[in-house]
Design a protein around this nucleic acid. Structure first.
Lengths: 338, 338
DNA sequence: GGAATGGATGTTACCGATAACATAGATCGA
DNA sequence: TCGATCTATGTTATCGGTAACATCCATTCC
């Protein structure tokens, strides 16, 4: 029946060594106040001697539910903004003793579906998901699971449970309007792949809305069909194409592209920001390193993770948590725009 | 006794709906060939209707052991190089259906001790740890657990189980020697906090060894006592102090500091690389964005994660896996040095 | 001094699944 | 035609713990 698990000593071993039953050992670990001091000491000595580590799987199963884990699904840890979210989440979880289980979807929604099901099998006590659009089946599964779920990096009125984010549409709208306010008239827009990225789509909508409101000309919209992570070179490569539209400013939806474009513009002798203004999105570390420093939209990645974590924990403890938490973004003016 | 878990339907519900016993449902999921086709169909229909998701906790407990999870402990996801490692690990694990549980130690070894114990409780099938020095207790715990363990980002002859990394000492030595080869004579060394970072210590040793071998003067060694994540500003802030040693080159053990130093040098009208050569470590994205572009040591973060993952999986399957995998680093010459 | 009280520990049942063995029909060969 | 063999499914015990209730003994109080 080869059922015994690997090499771990069991509570029974500890109990025997301490001359008590397993239940007393269990108590010693979960509510030591109920155990006599000398018994406690014997048990701890036995734990030390055996190298006992409780089996959380068994504990969670018995206690009925997840073993203090929260699952986070993000597109990729490669992208600093999601890494920020993880850091924020981790910071919120640590003091409460919760652990983080991480999954990367690679921006693919089928992968997300598969991961949600797989992770649900581990009965986490909460979920952090990236974005707000997902398959019906996944929504349904999560709703039935009746577990705190936070969707992030966007806002919606119909979350599965809770949302923590900001409006990507408004962020792009505001940046576009801000550029117009600085005197730019022909503002081009370059987006990352939007096929599986609703956030990219919303930004495009915001950009369009701003142009319309301001009566500015709608230029052709460019999309970089990069496979996975954005690369600086992609921004450089697309610049000539965009220039054909004769823009006086270009708004990239990623700092990475924007940086590449700045470098390429310099190589071509185009004066930034005088002849061409360039703006990015995300406010990554490189934004302050390029010259001229990049004007961009600062997004609250870490805060999103932290607030999401706090909300999940609140829900677990039965405390109230807001269904929608809007975290402000901010336009950071630097030298790549007038 | 409120033991029932949250809201999840159990296998029993599915079984009743399909008119079979739980064992048949269990078989339908784990070895469908043993179940009659029409029974299988009824069971799948029942699963669909109930929204059943198997409880992996119970399954793993019964089957005796971890439920296809690998635990990785890294200092922080904020640092791109560790994020790379995670991406590599994740890529190795995904095709085999293994999941990644992530813990951040914040460079604190007590935190690592606590996390190892906590995660061990979840009976993962493998561990990836960062670095090769750790408390005896943790080593002991992991050895007893008899689970594949890969230590990373450094090399050692006495791993707990396996190591995947490169020699930080050699990397720093080689960069120092390379700088000397470019004609620099007074090479300063600026390190991040080394108190809880053995990799920083090893690099310092490598630097010193190179100087001695080459007969170059040993300058004062500088340490940036940054609290957590390195900041560009830290590199700028320390430059004046370092300049007091009259170096003709400075080797920073992080690109981030090096970038700050380049910017500060430019502000002060110091010509890089003519008057002052600057080298970094890690080869982050910013290295190609600063001007002049940064000479640095490229470290194989992603490969480390990938190989570590492959090795863990091999061990799990009982296949042989190397105790030591040395992954090459590379010196990348750019424009911040002669 | 005996009942009431309370602290320390033991017993029993159960969490949700799976391994191993058992059993009922169907199929098959001599 | 009848036992042997195979298929599909059921039964029982168990994984490693924990909740709830039971028990035992030492105090405490009138």
């Amino acid at each position: 029946m080869m059922k015994r698990e690997k090499n771990f000593p069991r509570m029974a071993e500890v109990a025997k060594l301490a001359g008590v039953t397993v239940m007393t050992v269990s108590r010693a670990l979960r509510s030591p106040a109920k155990v006599a001091p000398d018994t406690l000491a014997r048990i701890h000595a036995a734990i030390e001697r055996t190298g006992y580590v409780p089996n959380a799987l068994a504990g969670a199963l018995s206690a009925g539910g997840g073993g203090k884990t929260i699952t986070a699904l993000i597109p990729t840890v490669q992208h600093a903004i999601f890494a920020d979210t993880i850091t924020g989440l981790s910071a919120a979880l640590r003091p409460e003793g919760y652990h983080l289980v991480l999954g990367e979807t690679g921006y693919r929604s089928e992968e997300e579906d598969a991961l949600v099901a797989a992770f649900l099998a581990r009965r986490p006590e909460g979920f952090l998901l990236t974005g707000v659009t997902r398959s019906l089946r996944t929504r349904d599964l999560l709703k039935r699971a009746n577990v705190p779920v936070v969707e992030t990096w966007e806002l919606t009125n119909t979350p599965i449970d809770m949302v923590v984010g900001y409006s990507n549409e408004k962020a792009a709208h505001d940046m576009t309007a801000w550029l117009a306010g600085r005197g730019y008239q022909r503002i081009a827009f370059v987006s990352g792949p939007s096929r599986n990225n609703e956030r990219a789509r919303r930004r495009e909508i915001g950009y369009r809305r701003a142009l319309k409101e301001l009566g500015l000309p709608a230029l052709k919209i460019f999309t970089i069909g990069a496979p996975a992570a954005p690369q600086v070179e992609d921004g450089a490569a697309i610049l000539p194409e965009v220039l054909a539209e004769k823009p006086d400013a270009i708004f990239f939806t990623s700092d990475i592209y924007a940086v590449g474009a700045i470098q390429e513009a310099k190589r071509r002798g185009i004066a930034v920001p005088k002849e061409l203004g360039i703006a990015g999105f995300h406010d990554l570390a490189i934004a302050t390193v390029v010259e001229p420093a990049l004007t961009t939209v600062h997004v609250p990645g870490r805060e999103i993770g932290y607030i999401a974590g706090r909300n999940i924990l609140a829900r677990i403890k039965g405390e109230p948590a807001p269904q929608l938490s809007a975290i402000p973004f901010a336009i950071v003016a630097r030298d790549s725009t007038k």
